[in-house]
Design a protein around this nucleic acid. Structure first.
Lengths: 134, 134
DNA sequence: CCATTACGATTACACCTGTAATCTGAATAG
DNA sequence: CTATTCAGATTACAGGTGTAATCGTAATGG
């Protein structure tokens, strides 16, 4: 059973994580726990956000069960509840299911056509395949 | 330059195509041109939609520049303006950029871990890589 | 003890999306 | 010529998303 109909990108809570929220998650996957201010430090630059925006996103992520909060005096420390690999795996599967009927090979073909594959990528993929076959 | 900052999934119009809209596009990529009724024939079953829903999606897609209309008596014939390969390529690139820093190899690794790669897939990917190296 | 700060919580609000019902005008049946 | 039908257009409306301002409260400086 390679194709899975039900989507479920990260389990924990099962709620979908939006694009903006994802940026916040990335910051916390890179390092955690962090305070809201620290997260902002990381993402506000890149995305042109202000603190309130980050606060909102953090709250929504907590609601969605994607982050845990741990009180630290007057503030919160935020920690991811879903692993990056779970999220990434889920999103990848979603794409492959939606666009390629669940088959990864056509995806690779497209990436190749789009020149998204460098020679290094090709070498690395071959290495991966070798390992997989073992 | 493997990583592209600007997103641009299908060019024509540049507007993003939503999930529901994508289902309609698929029907028209499979065969075109088609009338709204014909499209509904294809998708209403699968998605549990009614005609009005399909009409709305078709209209939005026309607005977004993803579909062309060609009057046929009282009704319209709809034809995709963006190629499926362009859409699929764009979406794939978006995912790879967003989650894997633009590198395809880690994506493959994840698909492998998630067991989304069958032995057939692996064989086919190897074949693709061989061709690419030529 | 009081004024200011620094947080998280609440509220805001416009746009997008999913999902339709209703309107309007033209073709067609009688 | 008129009533019905059928197509696209307009409107609807709740929930999600991006992006924030404001509120309430607890700590902190003086």
């Amino acid at each position: 059973m390679t194709t899975r109909t039900e989507d479920q990108q990260g389990d924990a809570g099962g709620e979908r994580i939006s694009d903006a929220e994802h940026a916040v998650m990335e910051a916390l996957w890179k390092r955690s726990p962090q305070t809201a201010a620290e997260v902002c430090e990381t993402v506000c630059k890149d995305r042109g956000w202000s603190m309130p925006t980050v606060k909102t996103l953090l709250s929504r992520l907590v609601q969605k069960g994607a982050l845990a909060t741990q009180p630290d005096g007057r503030r919160f420390l935020y920690t991811p509840l879903i692993a990056r690999s779970a999220y990434v795996g889920g999103e990848s599967r979603r794409l492959v299911d939606r666009l390629f009927g669940g088959r990864a090979a056509p995806l690779l073909a497209h990436l190749a056509q789009e020149e998204a594959l460098s020679p290094d990528d090709i070498a690395e993929i071959e290495r991966l395949l070798q390992e997989m076959k073992k």
